[in-house]
């Protein structure tokens, strides 16, 4: 095979934009969040990462974005190992990703317009007139063109996430990561966001990763689902396949049962013992 970097890269390109292999990650001593996780994020699809609170779903997005480093394993974005990049190359990779944070993470000293224009002004040399047009188009896509002059801290939670979504797609990224996009949203905002995520993914040819524990909403707009629990993938596949999963952790999560492999009670001594009632066996 001729030693041509482009050819090598083209041959290496597969259907998965993100490939995670043997991922291990923990906080401090003893608290292992991921214990050998393999995940593939196919190009052009909406992939949901689900699981109970505290399973490290947001952590996964930060690992994919290179903000945190895994203890072991690899995270590849378009064939490039995210955690083997220098700062400059990592930032170049991040320009191809967009991320919607749980609280929007809008810059509170800027207006809605300036928030969306922020990545364009930082990373392009486009004239201000063109930036204005692009920002208005992005804001129009999320239905907030009319809110361009509002201050970022004057927005409701739903509006802030839509502005953050417009900002996340400002540079036309290949992939957008959504961190709990539906948490705390009223039904109208939730419906709007769900439709936006699906529509933007299809219209712009994006790859989307949604981290959430809103089962019904996420399953209805996803092409592929992973359910994580106890540091491992406990179910994966299409929404239909996952709905029919018989794995105990997945079943408990999907059905919202309080009893199952995940105990409702945090490990503790017997209540009677804690209250000083009766004999301790």
């Amino acid at each position: 095979m001729p030693d041509i970097p482009f050819l090598k890269h083209a041959m290496a390109v597969d259907d998965n934009l993100v490939k995670i292999r043997g991922l291990r990650f923990g906080y401090g001593r003893g608290r292992l969040v991921y214990d050998g996780v393999d995940i593939d994020i196919p190009r052009g699809c909406v992939t949901a990462i689900m699981g109970p609170s505290g399973t490290g779903k947001t952590t996964l997005l930060r690992l994919i974005g290179g903000q945190w480093r895994p203890t072991a394993g690899t995270v590849e974005f378009d064939g490039v190992d995210v955690h083997r990049q220098g700062r400059r190359d990592l930032y170049a990779l991040r320009r191809r990703m967009g991320m919607l944070f749980q609280n929007g993470a809008l810059l509170t000293d800027l207006s809605v317009f300036d928030n969306v224009a922020f990545p364009l002004r930082e990373h392009t040399t486009l004239p201000e007139s063109m930036i204005r047009d692009l920002v208005l188009l992005k804001l129009d896509a999320v239905g907030l063109r009319g809110a361009r002059d509002l201050a970022a801290d004057a927005l409701s939670g739903g509006m802030a996430r839509r502005v953050a979504l417009a900002r996340a797609i400002a540079l036309d990224p290949e992939m957008v990561m959504y961190d709990e996009p539906f948490t705390g949203q009223d039904p109208i905002s939730m419906g709007v966001l769900m439709r936006l995520i699906r529509t933007l993914n299809d219209a712009l040819g994006l790859t989307s990763i949604i981290v959430s524990h809103d089962v019904a909403e996420v399953l209805s707009i996803s092409d592929q689902v992973y359910i994580l629990s106890g540091g491992k993938v406990v179910a994966q596949g299409t929404p239909e396949a996952v709905r029919g999963s018989t794995e105990a952790h997945a079943r408990q999560f999907l059905d919202g049962r309080h009893d199952g492999p995940l105990a409702f009670q945090y490990p503790a001594p017997l209540l009677a013992q804690d209250l000083g009632l009766g004999a301790v066996s």
């Binding site: 974005g65 903000q67 991040r94 609280n103 993470a105 810059l107 509170t108 922020f118 953050a164 900002r167």
Partner: peptide, 17 residues
């Protein structure tokens, strides 16, 4: 409020900005 993390994910160095 994740504004610094948001900048990092937009490939903008918060130290500089």
């Amino acid at each position: 409020t994740d504004q610094l993390s948001g900048m990092e994910m937009m490939a903008v160095d918060p130290l500089r900005y």
